[in-house]
Computed example of a mutant assay.
Amino acid sequence: MGVYLPLTTARDGYGRRPAAEERPHRLTVARRRMVAEDVVSLRLTTPEGRLLPPWQPGAHLDLHLPSGRQRQYSLVGDPADRYAYTIAVRLIPDGAGGSAEVHRELGEGDRVTVRGPRNAFPFAGDRAVLLLAGGIGITPILPMAREAAWRGLDWRLVHSGRTRASLPFADELDRLARRHPGRVEILADDEHGVPDAAALLARAPEGAAVYCCGPAPMLDAVRGAFEDNGSGALHFERFGAPPIVDGEPFTLRLRDGRELAVPADRSALDVLRADNPATPYSCRQGFCGVCKLRVRSGAVQHRDRKLTPRQRADGEMLVCVSRAAAGTCLELDV
């Protein structure tokens, strides 16, 4: 039986550790285009036309918006194009405002700050791969497909979503399908029904590694069906926060003395944002560090993949994933 791999893999298929470019870059929106219903693509370049740091399929950028919001978006362009980064953003009408700001306020010629690239979803270049994308989840998957084709791997790609009009980068996928017949499949729910996870996994070449990015129900279904499948390994990336399945209720105490109850099924970040919507956050998965806060007292159950042992010992905490034991209190410096 295959094994589940964590979101962060130690080395890629070339034996390299995924590097993170920490220096911020001030970039210009050189091109903006709609690539599906409610999905906008942005091509970002330096004002001087300089080379940008290299990246590998699966990498993402931290995008710092003019409002101060920070969000993460997968790179969907060509890693060989060192003069531009391309991202795609789906509008989430009832979201926290980041996607709406990109759609409604960012235009060609506007400036944004980015950090990265970082890679928490590296493509290992296995001999055989099945690539599964749900909706906007095509963004990290498309560069993987291009690299798999370039390297001559045995690969398949399935892109699913509500309707064909809602699926981004249809033109790029069509070109890829024409160049590599039989390797790209588009499944629109209104034409084919909601895809069955076991049936999707059955498309994998023998012993293939599976890479999956999409909404939580799709990931949960694929993970549930994976144990009965003969595939070699499962790599996946979530759109947002993973579900809390083993949490216990605890309390946060703020500097002003107020106490906020954290239920077993919600994160500390959820509760803090309900109290103060300006509370900073980005990945909600414990690897970007944007939501880091200092704990003045209390024992933290650290669940992140970002903080060093020294940072934890100094009282730092990522409130998107880390918690406390049942009935205890964490006093925050906020």
Rank of each mutant, 00 (worst) to 15 (best):
G2F: 06
L5I: 00
L7D: 12
A10F: 04
R16A: 11
R17Y: 00
A20C: 08
A20V: 15
R32K: 12
R33C: 08
R33L: 07
V35I: 13
V35T: 10
E37H: 14
E37L: 12
R43Y: 04
T45W: 12
R50K: 13
R50I: 01
P57G: 03
D62F: 06
P66S: 09
G68K: 08
R69T: 11
R69N: 10
Q70S: 12
R71C: 11
Y73G: 02
S74W: 01
L75D: 01
D78V: 08
P79V: 11
A96Q: 15
S99E: 04
S99R: 13
H103Y: 05
R104W: 08
E105C: 12
E105W: 11
G109S: 08
V114S: 07
A120V: 12
P122K: 09
F123N: 01
F123I: 01
G125Y: 02
D126Q: 05
D126F: 03
R127G: 05
V129P: 09
G134S: 08
G134V: 13
L142M: 10
P143S: 09
M144R: 12
M144I: 04
R146E: 10
E147T: 12
W150C: 10
L153Q: 14
L153N: 03
L157N: 11
H159F: 10
R164S: 05
A165I: 04
P168S: 09
P168D: 02
E172S: 14
D174E: 15
A177C: 06
V184K: 08
L187G: 05
A188R: 07
D189F: 02
D190I: 01
E191F: 02
G193P: 04
L201S: 13
P205C: 10
E206F: 11
G207N: 06
A208F: 06
A209V: 01
C212S: 14
G214N: 12
R223P: 01
G224D: 15
G224I: 12
F226S: 15
H235G: 03
H235A: 04
F236R: 09
E237I: 04
P242E: 10
P242R: 14
V245W: 07
V245R: 15
D246W: 05
T251V: 04
L254F: 07
D256V: 00
G257C: 00
V262D: 00
V262P: 00
P263N: 06
R266A: 14
A268H: 03
L269S: 09
V271Y: 00
L272T: 05
S282V: 07
Q285R: 15
G286C: 11
F287L: 10
R294E: 15
R296Y: 00
V300F: 02
V300Y: 00
Q301I: 10
R303S: 10
D304N: 13
R305Q: 13
P309C: 02
R312V: 04
G315L: 06
L318I: 07
S322Q: 11
G327Q: 03
C329V: 14
C329P: 00
L330S: 02
D333M: 10
